[in-house]
Computed example of a mutant assay.
Amino acid sequence: MKTKLTEMLGIKYPLIQGSMQYMSLAELASEVSNAGGLGLVPSMAFPNVDALRAEVRKMKSLTDKPFGFNISLVPEVVIPQMIFDYINVLIEEEVPVIETSGQRPGNFIKPIKEAGIPIIHKVTSIKHALAAQADGADIVTVIGTEGAGHPGLDQVPGSILWAKAAEELEVPVLAAGGIVDGKSMYAAMSLGVDGILMASRFLASDEVKAPRSFKEKLITLPETSTVLTMKSLRNAMRVVHNKQAQRILDAEAAGATLEDLMPLISGKASNIALMEERYDDAQMTVGQGVGRIREIKPAREIVAEVMADFYATHDYMKDLVGKD
């Protein structure tokens, strides 16, 4: 399959595995890349530049296909100097693709552009998509409100954002949020985007760094099981509506500041709780598409299944049109 995305990144399928903090490490990302997609690893999962460099080299040992690393630009969480230090490591190690997210990329992408590395920037609105394009992003990912992580405050469905982004942007557009199989991929691409970013589906993969019990819990969740926390911080986060999420919502309702909320919203603390199987003490980031995830599989099988489903859906649509 050829799109502007596959040609720009040198991948077989226009399918990117979303970066999931602490969970989508080299073991998962390399398998997605080996299957024909593009695997992404979150740089900020690593405590220092040496650990990041080691993970990049691990990726290179596991795949000879294109892959990428995400750099979070969230100013409240990551100091600018650390961002530049991590970017420098990715440039020095010749990472094939870099994804940025969290704020406008303009202040950070100059060295990436100079190195000739394609930049994907992730946004939640058309306004931010146009700004990212103006800043020099080569590809823009647009996340609908269905998505896990930080889907923005506007709460606009992906189907509306993706179509509008494809109409208004000149650079390739990726659709994200609620895409878990070939049918949802087909639906997104029918709106004019050049590919998809899919994260929550890979939470139910063998290679994601999480306990088996988490994955087994995940595939039982309905589409109504998530909630948006952190809206008071203007950084809404879609997570499973468990006891920890309710603690955050209660604190926000009581007027908690960022400092007050940090012990509750800490990604590191949540990951420790998750790895210890204390699920009511963890923010479990997952999108509304979780209601359609029902099997735990190897990442390569997930990619193959998505693409087979995509082509089967295309055949169904051709047959449907042929019945006119």
Results as ranks from 00 to 15, higher is better:
G182E: 03
A312T: 09
E27W: 00
N242C: 11
A165I: 03
G287K: 00
S270D: 12
K268V: 15
S43F: 04
L264A: 03
M262P: 00
K243G: 01
R300G: 14
D260G: 11
Y186G: 00
P298A: 06
E94T: 07
G192D: 01
E301S: 12
I265L: 13
F46K: 11
K65L: 02
I139P: 05
L25V: 06
T226H: 05
K209I: 13
N48K: 08
D281E: 15
I98R: 02
A282K: 05
V306R: 03
F108C: 10
P80R: 04
D64A: 08
V56E: 07
A256F: 09
S266P: 03
K209A: 12
P211C: 09
R278Q: 14
M284E: 07
Q155K: 15
P222Y: 02
A26R: 02
R300C: 04
F108V: 11
A210S: 13
A35Y: 00
M1E: 08
V49G: 08
I120T: 06
V49N: 14
A166K: 04
L174R: 01
G39D: 01
P42A: 10
L221H: 09
L90V: 10
L274V: 03
I143Y: 05
D324S: 13
G178E: 05
N242K: 09
D194L: 06
S30N: 00
P96R: 01
M230R: 13
A131N: 08
K4N: 15
V77P: 07
R238D: 02
M189G: 09
P263Q: 10
E76H: 12
G116K: 10
V227N: 06
A304F: 07
A312D: 15
E259W: 04
M307G: 06
A148R: 00
H314C: 10
L15D: 02
N48C: 10
S270M: 11
S266H: 00
K323L: 13
E168N: 07
E94Y: 05
I71A: 06
V286S: 02
H241E: 14
L320G: 06
S184C: 03
L73S: 07
D50S: 13
